[in-house]
Amino acid sequence: MTTGVFIDGAAGTTGLEIAARLAGRSEFSLITLPDDRRKDARARAEALNDADVVILCLPDDAAREAVGLIANDRTRVIDASTAHRVAEGWTYGFPEVIGRDAVAAARRIANPGCYPTGFIGLLAPLVRAGLLPVAWPYSCNAVSGYSGGGKALIERFAQEPDIAWRGYALEFGHKHVPEMQVYAHLAIAPLFSPAVVAAYRGMVVEVPLALSIIPGAPSPATLRQALATFYAGSPVVTVAAEGAAGGEILMREHAPAWDGLRLHVIASPDGSQARLVAELDNLGKGASGAAVQCLNLISGLPETAGLAL
């Protein structure tokens, strides 16, 4: 028996990437709408209610509207928008942090944001274990491939080929900050500085730590070991055994799709400072790969089926 899947917003960047990961998989049958009916409310409502699983790749308001069109208690939802990430009744779709069983049993799953995946993946295990404080003014510096901005930003980079780096959200209030704070168990919202660079896909997220002034902070080696223990056995998340090779981490302009998450703890020679760094694909574990991982879990399938690892 196959699982019927409807990707609402299938023509967008995230939807296309999800469809590519499901192509050729006999466990799923895709419910599709012709182009002239994709925005027809009646056709969408029918598809939303016919599906066993709906994956929403829509703007926030449209995602909320789509959920409201589901008139049964059978259809399960994976929402790739920001709309439900801290909403009551929704399970955060980060199996390694929230728990695979919790995700597998969920009826409503909110796909994590790309930047928060790196930030939470680094900090949540360490704060939860009491190795880093809950009440601390953490900062997060991050760069992403421009595909994370969807079609509009992809077009802007095509029209402005001389732009190599674009810093944004400089006036604060980025929509990812609430989930970063909630799921990293923080009392203080992090200072978040995102940017996009002239690479199609990829992401590097960094949390700098002045360990010498953090009360009770452990050594970088202890932080690294704690992350390695927390993610031991994960087929998706890996922890580097040492600092970055050659003191560098690279993003490639034409990197292939990748659904993993690689974490680093990079220490100063005297151990007084550390950089927590996450590498991921903003379209992979940061979006479409994460949605497919959750789809696999709620379907009772191996979580890495169809993923590029």
Rank of each mutant, 00 (worst) to 15 (best):
G4T: 15
G4V: 09
V5M: 09
D8C: 15
T13K: 05
T13R: 11
G15D: 09
L16N: 12
E17N: 15
I18Q: 07
R25A: 13
S29L: 07
I31P: 00
K39N: 13
A43N: 08
R44N: 07
N49I: 06
D50H: 12
A51N: 03
A51T: 02
L58V: 07
D60E: 15
A63W: 08
L69V: 06
I70S: 07
N72W: 09
D73A: 15
R74Q: 13
I78S: 03
D79G: 08
A83I: 11
V86C: 15
V103A: 06
A106Y: 03
R108K: 10
I109Q: 03
N111C: 15
P112I: 13
T117H: 02
V127L: 05
G130R: 04
V134A: 14
W136V: 00
W136I: 00
C140F: 03
V143D: 02
V143F: 10
S147R: 07
K151T: 13
K151I: 10
L153K: 10
I154Y: 00
E160R: 13
D162Q: 14
A169G: 00
M180D: 03
Q181L: 11
A187F: 01
A199N: 05
R201S: 14
R201Q: 13
G202V: 04
V204L: 14
E206C: 14
V207G: 07
P215R: 12
G216F: 06
P218R: 09
P220Y: 11
R224K: 10
P235L: 06
P235I: 05
A241R: 04
E242N: 12
G243N: 05
G243R: 03
G246C: 08
G260T: 01
G260W: 01
G260Y: 01
L261M: 10
L263W: 06
H264Y: 15
D270Y: 07
S272F: 00
V277F: 02
A278Y: 02
A278M: 04
L280C: 04
N282K: 00
A287D: 12
A291L: 04
C294E: 04
G300S: 12
L301D: 01
L301K: 01
L301C: 03
E303D: 06
L309V: 00
